[in-house]
């Protein structure tokens, strides 16, 4: 109790002094010991970035929020204020609910699998010395492949006529119908998205592993006999910061960057196919011309993503202090 009060008081004070600092350009610990003290020059350097951000970030963001409270006339003759109707409509529609459920499932699968496989490969690549760099090159090259290209190639592999993966499934007695069957499409989306993301996780895990000092590894070798034990007790805790960072990145990836994969695989025919929330924003806005509803969904997503990023920042901040 007392602690909370103290903390609130402290944070109020901190806020006040921060506001004062904003005005006076005083920071208690400036980034550099010595800085240029000119009132106008920094604006010259900042102006281009600020202009781009204001026009292409703040303006659309504000517009998203405003238009989420309006219903636009389909023929473009003005719009009507409807309060939170767009929000309630969006959230209560059964389609929205099923999309949300799929998005959560999809994010969980993609994140878990690509992190897991990435980690496994990184641990093995860290262990082998011979050929390590060729494995690395192979794994990394896939990173540069664009998601839509991944979608296209993946779609071919799952193609009902020529796809070898369809043949493989048939061999096991399953009739794989990607693009038609909900479950099969979901499976294909997960596989392609995981395939695309493994290299990214691999790069980070490997560099995380390689930054574990040799002395620590040797100490672990002396202290623990079993390799699994060593991995669990020593390596994994040291990788935790990297893993957390990647967790957030992977969730963001699964939510947003998989858009092209979905678009290529689903091919504008979302009728019976799984899509994510971001894809629905796009569909409702551009195909369904429901600007208000699409904006309301945008705002909901914005809040979710902002929360996710703030979490990451808080974590980063801690890392900077204690890392």
């Amino acid at each position: 109790m007392t602690e909370t009060t103290i903390r609130t008081a402290a944070s109020n004070r901190a806020l006040l002094s921060r506001l004062r600092a904003w005005y006076n350009a005083d920071t208690s610990n400036p980034v550099k010991r010595v800085q240029f003290d000119r009132p106008l020059t920094p604006w010259v350097f900042l102006l281009p970035q600020l202009a781009v951000i204001v026009i292409f970030f703040y303006w659309p963001s504000v517009q998203a929020v405003t238009s989420s409270f309006y219903i636009e006339d389909p023929f473009g003759f003005g719009s009507t204020f409807v309060g939170t109707e767009n929000y309630t409509d969006a959230v209560t529609s059964s389609q929205y609910a099923s999309t949300a459920v799929f998005t959560v499932f999809f994010c969980a699968m993609v994140t878990a699998l690509s992190l897991g496989i990435g980690l496994l490969l990184a641990v093995k690549a860290d262990k082998v010395i011979r050929g390590a760099s060729s494995y690395k090159t192979v794994l990394i090259s896939v990173y540069a492949i664009a998601p839509p290209v991944a979608g296209l190639v993946g779609m071919m592999l799952f193609d009902m006529h020529i796809g070898p993966l369809t043949d493989l499934a048939a061999f096991f007695g399953h009739d794989l119908r990607v693009g038609i069957d909900y479950g099969d499409t979901a499976f294909a989306l997960v596989v392609i998205s995981v395939w695309k993301q493994i290299p990214y996780n691999f790069i980070f895990f490997l560099s995380g592993l390689q930054s574990v000092p040799t002395s620590v590894r040797e100490a672990a070798l002396i202290d623990a006999q079993s390799g699994l034990r060593r991995f669990w007790d020593v390596t994994l805790p040291l990788l935790a910061p990297t893993a957390f960072f990647l967790l957030v990145i992977n969730i963001t990836y699964a939510m947003f960057d998989t858009f092209p994969i979905i678009d290529v695989v689903v091919k504008d025919k979302p009728a019976n196919n799984p899509i994510t929330l971001v894809y629905k924003v796009y569909l409702d806005g551009f195909k369904g011309n429901d600007i208000g509803g699409s904006s309301a969904q945008s705002v909901i997503l914005m809040v979710a993503v902002a929360a996710l990023t703030v979490m990451q920042f808080r974590f980063l901040e801690r890392r900077v202090h204690y890392g």
């Binding site: 951000i53 026009i55 970030f57 303006w59 924003v281 806005g285 993503v305």
Partner: peptide, 20 residues
């Protein structure tokens, strides 16, 4: 102001961005 932009990827404000 600048670092807030890290919060929101283009995809979530795609519709209004298009309008702008």
């Amino acid at each position: 102001m600048i670092f807030t932009t890290l919060l929101l990827p283009l995809e979530v404000r795609i519709m209004p961005s298009y309008q702008v």
